[in-house]
């Protein structure tokens, strides 16, 4: 009886997630009257703005991930190693982006870095891209930090550091050759979450007026019927592709098997 209830709950959960997906996919295939076709997908792929905005967001996602890793891995490592008493404070700071809306952050940016400020980042496209990357890194911080911190928990940071030091290694070598490789899977899952956030982000990109994927989706959604669901299905496919890739990487890094 208990098993039955459990299965029922599981099925209900599946339906809750799958039905909208199935409905959306089905609708996206109905562009041609009376038959299923990929017309909506062809339209999306034929639109040069799709490629432009998607490429732009992908580039910024990569920059955000690199910046996030460079910021978060040494910070989380240092906090674990030298400032364990500061962990609650750091955790609180990394959670702030969840409670401060993106729109507040971006207005703050515009006020601080406008063309008449001491650092006129919004004055050029490149400067604005930097600003947007920083904004994305802020939004992704809670996920990135948590992922890396959890990864660090699985290794004996203090002893490994001392072992490396006694063998002559400096801080850079320790971080690059020992800490980072050992939390790589955690970093990858953080990177994946960052990618998902950046690809779908609308507020910051729209208000900083950059040609990102989020504003493009919004524009398409406001003006078309069949293309938006097609776009959503494509976005899902990309997301799942990334998840598969992470699994693959995990499988290939031999030493991680020990932890599994």
């Amino acid at each position: 009886m208990k098993r039955l209830v459990a299965w029922a709950a599981f099925l209900l959960g599946c339906l809750y997630f799958l039905l909208p997906l199935i409905g959306m996919t089905e609708f996206s295939l109905k562009m041609r009257r009376g038959e299923y076709s990929f017309d909506a997908y062809v339209r999306v792929f034929e639109d040069p703005r799709f490629w432009e905005t998607f490429g732009y967001s992908l580039t910024l996602a990569a920059a955000t991930i690199v910046f996030g890793v460079l910021l978060v891995v040494p910070t989380a490592y240092w906090v674990r190693l030298k400032l364990p008493q500061a962990r609650p404070i750091i955790e609180f700071i990394t959670l702030l982006p969840l409670v401060i809306p993106a729109i507040v952050i971006v207005f703050g940016y515009i006020r601080l870095y406008n063309t008449s400020s001491f650092l006129p980042l919004t004055g050029s496209a490149f400067g604005t891209d930097i600003l947007l990357t920083m904004g994305y890194a802020t939004l992704a911080l809670p996920y990135m930090y948590r992922a890396v911190d959890t990864g660090l928990r699985t290794i004996d940071v203090a002893t490994l550091t001392e072992a490396a030091q006694s063998l002559g290694a400096g801080w850079f070598t320790i971080l690059a050759r020992i800490i980072l490789p050992n939390v790589l899977v955690a970093v990858l899952s953080g990177a994946f979450l960052t990618l998902a956030i950046v690809i779908g982000e609308f507020t910051m990109a729209a208000l900083l007026n950059r040609p990102a994927f989020g504003p493009y989706m919004q524009l398409l959604g406001a003006n078309r019927a069949y293309e938006p669901p097609a776009l959503a299905v494509i976005a899902f496919a990309i997301t799942w592709g990334c998840m598969g890739l992470i699994q693959l990487v995990t499988r290939f890094s031999k030493h991680e098997r020990a932890k599994a």
Partner: peptide, 21 residues
Amino acid sequence: QRANQRNIGMMFQAYALFPNM
């Protein structure tokens, strides 16, 4: 001299082998 400049070998109770190597 810092720990990484002393050229001293050390063995730990927890082995401390680098798991990724």
